[in-house]
Design a protein around this nucleic acid. Sequence first.
DNA 1: GTAAGATACTCTCATGTGAGACTAAATTCA
DNA 2: TGAATTTAGTCTCACATGAGAGTATCTTAC
Lengths: 151, 151
Amino acid sequence: MTTDNQTTLDLKQFLPYSLTNIAMQMSEQFSELYQQQFDLTVPQWRIIANLAQYGECTAKELCDMAQMDKSTMSRAVKSLLTRNLIIAKENPKDKRASLLSLSVEGNRLHEQIVPLANEWQAGLVSDLDSQELKQFMNTLSKLSNHLNKNV
Amino acid sequence: MTTDNQTTLDLKQFLPYSLTNIAMQMSEQFSELYQQQFDLTVPQWRIIANLAQYGECTAKELCDMAQMDKSTMSRAVKSLLTRNLIIAKENPKDKRASLLSLSVEGNRLHEQIVPLANEWQAGLVSDLDSQELKQFMNTLSKLSNHLNKNV
DNA sequence: GTAAGATACTCTCATGTGAGACTAAATTCA
DNA sequence: TGAATTTAGTCTCACATGAGAGTATCTTAC
């Protein structure tokens, strides 16, 4: 492969472009699984998934973990509270930042989605052998680390 | 690594989640290169890059290539026409779909961005050896193919 | 050739997002 | 301790997006 760094840009090989396209498609296709069926928006699903995996945490922590804007977070949290899918507990260490966690119902919802999610991903990566997938994840995390250096 | 498909979901290993995060960061960090300096929005940049790589094409074709909504496309094209960065030529085969291409100025702009883009990506992948990068791109395109099967 | 349907694009409208102001609470520093 | 600064979260506002209607053109089918 010949590359001329000065004048040529191959979009298929250009990560900010092609990775965005693929991630968009992926998120769109996967979100069908929870949007109609469980009436969750993307931000709502992301909050639930993070609370399930990491347990009790504040909105700020969720913002950092899920790379979400604080306004979007605030709205999504509000709506999950209204639906009793999550619980807010006063934080003794900081009265501004209440501690969020999944309610019983929220947990039940999550438990319904998880097997669907795993199945979905299993289908997605079915063309890859496990070594290739592992290698891919590894490279991804290197890229992620690189991006976070500048932050 | 033990995985229980029924009850556990590891977001770090879950592609719709982690790929979206990484792609967002990437796109955000890269877009700084062209947003202020060349006053381009993301959709505008994507149009220019595609026209530069693939030459004359219609708005519909650009929508498909860049996975953009037709409304967003329409607006971005309009603004690039106003700024004389692209040219619309009547399409003899279909009067609805005019043929878009880069103007001389558009080309000049693109030529300024390309080396910056290549440098940027070179920095991004500097932690990877060329074999690893090649493998990564290869896996990415497999995933992309899989996603497009269902479309 | 003409009617019915499909397609390319624009426009309008409803919605989601993110920047920044604002409030309350915590932290720092003197 | 008290004043100044920082921080967490909410709210408002401007803006971008995408769904769907509308228009012009093209295609299909009879």
